[in-house]
Design a protein around this nucleic acid. Structure first.
Lengths: 335, 335
DNA sequence: GTGAAAGCGCTAACAT
DNA sequence: ATGTTAGCGCTTTCAC
């Protein structure tokens, strides 16, 4: 029993009738629909999706490229994407672009081969991957810079307000009285890191402070916690009273390093991050950070993609608004 | 250009020749193989996976059921699974069983419908899900109790040494001199939590201490950090000098709660977890915990599944050995 | 070394 | 309300 023909035989109807009945097509009488469905579930029969999509030309599959499964930033995003996708009857084919640059091309190729109905690229330093993608299928880029998003049909993006968020955070630190504020960027080319730095410098200038380039460091370490630790090491000689890190993971690594040097947070030095990971409110002291509505972002991305799959081509970038979460890692500077 | 027929026409050969050429079948001359492949990549052509799997009866797809994308426990596991799967040319169709119990049936159904070649169920309190699965396709259960794993063909499992790990951890605390050791379990039925409790009690008995039921608490909160916090609240009146938590997330929540009550860790109270999440070495103080080789576990699970897909039916449970990571959250009790 | 033909399991027109 | 037929795009015998 693994085709509709067999079921049709058993039910004493035509295959096409079974096909329709199984999809609850109203052209089939309620009675036979029920009968066929009962027979199917009794026999544990499910239509073969491959055969189905061969005729319908839709796979009901969304390809998701995620930077790394182990990056806690992605979790809620995935949850949001899945929620919206599932609600619309779509499944997720997931691939991570973890490290390996080469692999992106492969991912793109597999997605093509599988004829996914659309693609979501999450939080990538993977920006180039969409260049390998089939231009006929819709793509949504999450947390990508508009500058990197080609303005072409079926390509949409969701922007995080990095610059504005960083400005807000820096203003928070300025308001507390800090004047020596460091920024820890990340090494590999990251427009998000650049944008956050721009917001940081902008806030300083608005406050009449000329940004001191020695207060901006770009660690070489590849892991985020390492970036934070190295950032602290590079920055401490400049005697900052507050350090703003590219993201929470770096901030938590930095926090660890600062504490290990015997400094007290926030009494002697303030620490701030960006992202608001679930863990950030649990570290000691709880981290002041900019929250990103990641669950909603995932949902928005998936919904936009579904709209594009449905034929809509609204490409206006979506925007995720960040919210300042003031916790205990920031306080006025020591006198 | 979206079928092999068109390509065949352009190449001036038969479709079946293209089919073979594209798969590098040695029966086709090197010359035509090269020509066809060149033509294909030039035209951006890829074979339709649906059509392909309709004939071959393989989808090269592994269905993965993961408890929750946002659970940091799963990240490395997924990474391991993907690494092994990709290496063998398989893709991952991922679904989370986040909360909603009902959904498992749906996931099972979609996996059936899509004819995935095998299924990996990760870290589930989702244990019943395999009951809905097609008995003809291989399944690997990760971090499941053998007791819950039906002994039937094509069902394999990877066991975490919960009891032994918990015993080791408790012995560590005993060795430090603790006598009043609390255990924070989790509310929802969890054999892992039960097993860890058993190991904990066993170690106590071995040390000549009769386990005190009042030192074991089962919080009601649903989120892990909340479980930890509530556990602390329930346990503190019993004046434990050390608390062993079901897992790291709970331990970190508990750590937060203990510190918020003005207690110093580890000077006044020791804290221990289980799992060794990436974050656990970054909290303050860094957490003493049992490490699970999660990356390898993922890899092992996938490799076993691939073996089963390949026809092997070795069902002997695989075992993940845990390692004690002594960090700064544990120390001798105060006098 | 290459080709012709049948069939994988389904859906979509088009009958009836 | 149901049945017939012709594909969807591929692989697989089996011929040549």
């Amino acid at each position: 029993m693994d085709s509709i023909y067999e079921l049709a035989r058993r039910a004493g109807v035509a295959p096409s009738t079974v096909s329709k009945a199984l999809r609850d097509d109203p052209r089939i009488s309620v009675a036979t629909r029920a009968r066929v469905q009962a027979l199917a579930s009794e026999a544990g029969f499910t239509v073969n999706a491959a055969a189905q999509s061969l005729t319908t030309r839709r796979t009901l599959t969304i390809g998701v490229i995620v930077s790394d499964y182990a990056d806690p930033y992605n979790g809620l995003l995935m949850r949001g994407i899945e929620a919206a996708a599932m609600a619309a009857g779509y499944q997720l084919l997931v691939s991570s672009a973890h490290e390996t640059g080469v692999r992106e091309v492969d991912i793109a190729r597999t997605f093509r081969q599988r004829r996914v109905d659309g693609i979501i690229i999450v939080a990538s330093h993977v920006s180039e991957s969409h260049e390998h993608l089939d231009p006929r299928i819709p793509v949504v880029l999450v947390a990508e810079k508009p500058a990197l998003v080609p303005d072409r049909p079926l390509v949409s993006c969701l922007i995080v307000e990095d610059e504005a968020g960083a400005r807000t955070m820096t203003q928070h630190l300025l308001t507390l009285g800090h004047r020596q504020i460091g920024y820890v960027a990340i090494g590999r080319a990251s427009l998000a890191s650049d944008a956050r730095r721009a917001g940081y410098e902008d806030a300083l200038r608005q406050a009449g402070i000329e940004p001191d380039p020695r207060l901006v460091v770009v660690p070489n370490r590849r892991d985020m916690a390492g970036v934070g630790a190295e950032g602290v090491q590079l920055l401490l000689p400049q005697r900052p009273t507050a350090i703003f890190f590219y993201n929470d993971l770096a901030a938590i690594g930095g926090l660890r390093a600062v504490i290990d040097r015997g400094l007290r947070v926030p009494e002697q030095i303030s620490i701030a991050g960006f992202d608001d990971l679930e863990i950030s409110q649990l570290v000691t002291p709880p981290l002041t950070t900019m929250a990103q509505p990641r669950l909603d972002m995932g949902r928005m991305a998936a919904e936009r993609l579904l709209a594009m799959i449905g034929g809509d081509d609204d490409r206006t970038p979506m925007t995720a608004v960040c919210t300042l979460m003031v916790r205990r890692s920031t306080a006025p500077p020591p006198d």
